[in-house]
């Protein structure tokens, strides 16, 4: 399913949750949304889902408005950290409700997933643990093979084993059905594995959208040891994000191709020159110019 947002803004009583957000997600792509708490990730996903009406701008899923056209929602799946169920229903009653709601429901799939997770059909939802409720949510979201999956911090609160399992399941789903996925998460390491594109949301604004491999190819931390301090101009290059000095050791965060960076620093005949691997978090912070994140 193709998702398209154009200048979407959303206000809640004077507070602007989304501000002029525009992007396109081609069918079959996995799009990650990163951002601090309160950035508007949940609002964004709910607006795409059709639960909220944008104050201005337009949201289209496959060319149709998910808020007004109910049939589109039959192909959208939603999984959030906050889960709401009919607590008095048993697992099988909950499955039955979803089965009758979604025409594309696959019974064998739901049974297979339930058995895989070890969920008892007769247990009441209120008696399930938090982790089990998340698993139930996964079963419900995947069993009707939605063409668009919206995931709002689905791995928060999961232990590393379950997290990996969840991602594996998700990737299997994408590989098998070509599902379009929008996932918001704090876990950049997860997003790195599974996303085609990653977008940064900060205070309701979409700062940038990039491919992870592009990011990794363009930002490096270089440690240079120089016998004599070079001229001031040496450090005034615009592709240098930041320079920190500790005696004769200079740590530079720089944007550019690795080979050209190496040549530039080699020209200064350093005593030592090292490229330090940067975790994705630091790359992000450097790339976004420290906007919204403390980077001193």
């Amino acid at each position: 399913m193709h998702v398209s947002l154009k200048e979407v803004a959303k206000y809640f009583g004077g507070h602007s949750a989304l501000d002029s957000v525009s992007f396109d997600v081609p069918p079959g792509a996995v799009f990650g949304v990163v951002g601090p708490n309160g950035a508007g990730k949940t609002t964004l996903l709910k607006t795409i889902m059709g639960m909220l009406r944008p104050s201005s701008g337009s949201v289209t899923v496959d060319g149709r408005n998910p808020q007004t056209e109910t049939a589109v929602r039959a192909g959208i799946g939603y999984l959030a950290e906050a889960q709401y169920y009919y607590l008095d229903f048993t697992v099988s009653e909950t499955l039955c409700f979803y089965r009758e709601t979604y025409p594309t429901w696959q019974d064998e799939r739901s049974r297979e997933l339930c058995m895989g997770f070890g969920l008892s059909m007769r247990a009441k939802v209120k008696h399930l643990s938090r982790g089990q409720r998340t698993q139930l949510g996964v079963v419900l979201a995947l069993s009707y093979v939605p063409k668009l999956l919206l995931l709002d911090e689905p791995t928060a609160g999961l232990d590393p084993v379950m997290r990996r399992q969840f991602l594996a399941l998700l990737m299997d789903e994408v590989a098998q059905h070509g599902t379009t996925v929008l996932i918001s998460s704090h876990q950049l390491s997860d997003l790195e594995r599974i996303c085609d594109y990653v977008g940064v949301l900060h205070q309701g604004k979409l700062l940038d959208v990039a491919r992870i491999e592009d990011l990794k190819r363009q930002v490096f931390t270089v440690q240079v040891v120089l016998a004599e301090p070079p001229t001031d101009d040496f450090w005034r290059q615009e592709w240098m994000q930041s320079v920190r000095q500790h005696g004769r050791i200079y740590t530079v965060v720089a944007q550019g191709e690795r080979d050209s960076l190496a040549s530039y620093f080699a020209a200064a005949k350093p005593l030592a020159l090292e490229f330090i691997e940067m975790p994705l978090e630091d790359i992000f912070i450097a790339r976004m110019g420290g906007e919204g994140y403390a980077f001193k």
């Binding site: 709910k46 059709g50 639960m51 929602r73 709401y84 009919y86 709601t101």
Partner: peptide, 14 residues
């Protein structure tokens, strides 16, 4: 109260 209304609204029901 229980929040299931938001689930319903995300389903293909008017």
């Amino acid at each position: 109260d229980k929040g299931t209304l938001s689930v319903l609204l995300g389903m293909p029901y008017s």
